[in-house]
C-alpha cells in the first residue's frame, strides 16, 4: 500500500518549518502499514497533479508566492479537476491565497488566481499575527496554531474552523479555513498537523479510508503529540477551554 505525496514548492514556500507536517503524516501513515512516498517538486519541474494522493503547499514571502503563482496557473485545470475528483489537498498559511479568485496587491493591481473557490484576498500594508484557538465540526479537540500574514480574505463560503482566538480570515472574523471534498486549507502557519494530533489522525484515516477501505486501523503513535497539545492548552488557553465545555 502506497501513498504518493507531493510537497510542492518545498524549496521556496518554506517559511515556517512546513516540512514538519509531512514528517508527521509520513510517520503516522507508516504506523498503519502504508508506505508514503514524498515527491519534492518546484518551479523547475513539470508537475503531473493526477499522480498524487495528497498535494501539500506551505507559505512563502510575497515575492516568492507570486513567482509560484505564475507557475501554478499552468496547472489550473488539472488542479480544479483534482479537487473535484477528491484528491487530498493540505494547504497552510498564505499558500491558501492561490486557490481563490483573485489577489489584490498592495498597489491595488489584481492577480488572477486558480479560482477553485469564490473568495478573494487583499494585501494589507501591515502583517497580522496572533496565536490561534479554533474549533471544528469534525474534531473533538480544539485546533491550535499561529497566524502571520499580510492578506485578508473575503467572500469565503467554504470555511472550516470557528475562531475562538486568532485573526481568522481577517481581524475579528468568526470563521477561518477552506474545506471542500478533500481540500483542507488554513491560514494557520507551519507545523499544523504536528501541533494538532487529532487533525493529523483524522487526515491520515480519511486518506486511508478513501484509497484502502478495507484497512483495519492500528494504534497511532501520538501519545507525546497529544501531551504537548494538551499541556499547551492547559497553560495558555485554559479559559477558552472552560468556555468550550
Amino acid at each position: 500500500m502506497e501513498f504518493h505525496i507531493a510537497h510542492l514548492y518545498y524549496d521556496i514556500l518554506n517559511l515556517y518549518g512546513e516540512h514538519g507536517n509531512l514528517n508527521a503524516l509520513k510517520r503516522q501513515l507508516e504506523t498503519q502499514g502504508i508506505e508514503p512516498v514524498i515527491h519534492f517538486l518546484s518551479i523547475d519541474d513539470e508537475i503531473d497533479i493526477s499522480k498524487f494522493d495528497l498535494i501539500y503547499i506551505g507559505a512563502g514571502t510575497e515575492e516568492n508566492e507570486k513567482f509560484v503563482l505564475s507557475h501554478l496557473m499552468k496547472y489550473k485545470n488539472d488542479i480544479l479537476s483534482a479537487i473535484d475528483n477528491g484528491t487530498f489537498f493540505l494547504i497552510t498559511g498564505s499558500a491558501l491565497n492561490f486557490f481563490g479568485k483573485k489577489w489584490i496587491q498592495k498597489d491595488d493591481t489584481e492577480l488572477e488566481c486558480l479560482g477553485a473557490f469564490g473568495f478573494e484576498v487583499k494585501e494589507e500594508p501591515m502583517r497580522m499575527i496572533d496565536e490561534c484557538y479554533f474549533t471544528c465540526d469534525f474534531l473533538k479537540t480544539p485546533v491550535i496554531g499561529f497566524q502571520n500574514q499580510c492578506t485578508v480574505m473575503k467572500n469565503n463560503d467554504a470555511t472550516m474552523f470557528t475562531v475562538k482566538r486568532g485573526i481568522g480570515m481577517y481581524p475579528n472574523s468568526q470563521r477561518e479555513g477552506v474545506h471542500k471534498n478533500h481540500f483542507y486549507g488554513t491560514y494557520l502557519i507551519g507545523p499544523v498537523l504536528v501541533r494538532n494530533p487529532e487533525l493529523l489522525q483524522y487526515l491520515a484515516m480519511e486518506m486511508i479510508r478513501t484509497k484502502y477501505p478495507d484497512v483495519v486501523f492500528q494504534p497511532f503513535d501520538l501519545e507525546l503529540d497529544l501531551k504537548a497539545h494538551d499541556h499547551y492548552i492547559d497553560r495558555y488557553f485554559s479559559k477558552l477551554k472552560i468556555e468550550e465545555e
Binding site: 518549518g17 496565536e131 501541533r195
Partner: peptide
C-alpha cells in the same frame, strides 16, 4: 509575548 513554535521546525 508570542508563543509560536513553528521556528523549531526550521
Amino acid at each position: 509575548n508570542i508563543k509560536d513554535i513553528s521556528w523549531m521546525y526550521d
